[in-house]
Nucleic acid binder design. Structure first.
Lengths: 180, 180
DNA sequence: CCAACCATGTAACCCGTTACATGATTGT
DNA sequence: ACAATCATGTAACGGGTTACATGGTTGG
């Protein structure tokens, strides 16, 4: 239900096209929100039809950038102050770690090393992005909040993965154990 | 696509009914995976029809606990070693923080304080759960990995929220600023 | 001129949520 | 007996993904 709010948030910060948004969803924003182009484009049309965003002059290569309207800003503000955040999440890395006792310690360690590498790489990317923010601008000051949350969570995941690799290396040899 | 794997993971650790699983999804597992009872029950039936889990003798009050079969364990193991984790996530707390520049600093701080309280409470719950694990059991040793990831992520979110409250208190007064 | 990429879209399907429904058990 | 909670389910709807389709622009 808040794909539209994600779109409004991005467009409020600066005008963007569906393609721009798709790039961001694929990249730095995967840990915040994500959607496929096939979902983004129709939703942008709907937001425009409802007057929350407005199509700007068509850019090069058929780009269709949108800017937020006053009504859009009002809707965004309303969402922020009158509703509270949904905290339900899905995290496949952590889900899988709950199941690691069914595979060999070696396979468990392989998985954890792969996760460690992934999170390290993403952390590098986010830190670079953080350095590129221009804190004189209000939208970038808010973006810093979001990016900083991502950085801290990734740091947590990196240190967790390091700890987990060490931990599974000390698991006792798998002698046919019963379940709890 | 991996609701079924979430169910297999839980049932592999110990036999569980749909209701048990629903309680866990509502509680400590909200940060890992979640699903409503209306999705869980039919999926359990499907898993049973495919022979990955097996219904145990019906318990009191019409409980229908399931246990994992050898084929189910094999499927779980296969999933773990042959596919890699999907890292796409949705985090509404972080999404909202990207938009905080459109509301007043006071409203932004209200939001952040609410998030801080939420994450602190959940952290207390997870730490308690961690203390209840029996590390002589293989499933509990793996559960420790998952719980520890949750604890570290929540600690990161708590310290982030504290930092963010401090940070927005130092934002300049909102003098009609243009967008980037 | 051709390959790679930019940029937007439609249709069908599947996953997940909401609304609704039912009955058994426990505690007061 | 009555309320609260345990426990399982069905049907309809809406959000999200997959597969498919189209044409324009840039660089070699």
């Amino acid at each position: 239900m808040s794909l539209r709010m994600a779109l409004l948030t991005l467009i409020a910060g600066a005008p963007r096209s569906g393609y721009d948004i798709g790039q961001e969803f694929d990249g730095v924003l995967t840990f915040v929100w994500h959607a496929k182009p096939t979902q983004v484009y129709p939703e942008l049309k709907r937001l425009a039809a409802e007057g929350l965003i407005r199509e700007q002059a068509e850019g090069s290569r058929g780009r269709r950038p949108y800017e937020i309207t006053e009504e859009g800003t009002r809707a965004l503000r309303e969402w922020l102050v009158t509703t509270s955040a949904d905290h339900a999440q899905r995290n496949e890395t952590v889900l899988r770690s709950f199941a690691l006792w069914v595979v060999s310690p070696g396979e468990a360690a392989d998985f954890l090393r792969e996760e460690l590498e992934y999170h390290r790489a993403r952390l590098r990317g986010l830190r670079a992005l953080r350095n590129g923010l221009d804190l004189r601008l209000a939208p970038d000051r808010a973006a810093l909040l979001g990016v900083e949350a991502g950085v801290r969570r990734l740091e947590a995941m990196v240190s967790w993965a390091e700890w987990a690799i060490e931990t599974v290396s000390q698991w006792p040899a798998p002698v046919a154990e019963g379940r709890a």
